[in-house]
Amino acid sequence: MMHSTESEIIVEGNDLEDALAAASERLGVDRNILEYRVIDSNISGIFGLFKKRKITIKAWWRDGGHALQEAEQFLLGILSHMRINARVTGKETAEGLTLIIDGDRDGLIIGRRGQTLDALQYITNRYMQRDQTRKTRVILDCEGYRRRREQTIIRMAQNIARKVKRTGKSVAAQPMDSSERRLFHLALKTDRDLCTESHGEGDKRRVVVYPVKK
C-alpha cells in the first residue's frame, strides 16, 4: 500500500522558477519531486513602470509512505521496550497520520486521563518533526480512547454550561490540552448566553465559562 505524506512550506520568489528553487533548498529535496500550488502572484507598479513581479507558492514533496512506516516503527520500538505486546495500524487522515495501538495492556498504554497515550503521542511527534522542515503530525489512539474522550469533553462542557446558567457565575473546567480546549470551546460556541475563554499557562491552562449579561 502506498501512503504519502506532505510536508509543506510557503515561499516567495520573483517568478515560479525562483520560488521553486527556494522551496527545494528549504525542504532540502530535489525540485523534481516537488509539487506546488500558486497561492498568489501579482505585478505591482504604476502603468507598467517599476514593474515588479512576485509569486507566492505552497510547495511540498511526496515521500511515498516513508513517514507512516517510520512513525509506526518508532512507536513499536517504544512499546517493545515497555514490554508491551501491541500491534500498530497506521493510516493517513486529514489531520495527519493516525496510529492505532492494539495491545495486551490498553489501560497501561492509555494511562490516567490519557496521559500515557498523550506522552507517547508527544514523543512520536517530536521524533517525526526532528528535522524542522517536516511538519508531519501524528495522532495516537487506543481502543477508541480519543472519541470517548471527545464525548466526555462535550458532556463536561454541557454540564458546566447548565451550572453557569443556573448560578449566573463563571465556572472553570479542569486543565486540558489545546485540542481538548478547542473541543470545549466549540461545544458551547452557539450558546449566546455564555462565552468561553482560556486562562492559565502551560499544563494549567483551562477553559472558563462566563455568563453573558443582558
Binding site: 521496550h81 515497555m82 514490554r83 497501561l108 500515557t116 498523550d118 506522552a119 507517547l120 514523543i123
Partner: peptide, 14 residues
C-alpha cells in the same frame, strides 16, 4: 515530562 510519564507507565508493569 513525556519521557517521565512513559517511564513510569513502563515501571508500573514491574
Amino acid at each position: 515530562r513525556a519521557m517521565r510519564t512513559i517511564l513510569s507507565a513502563a515501571s508500573t508493569k514491574i
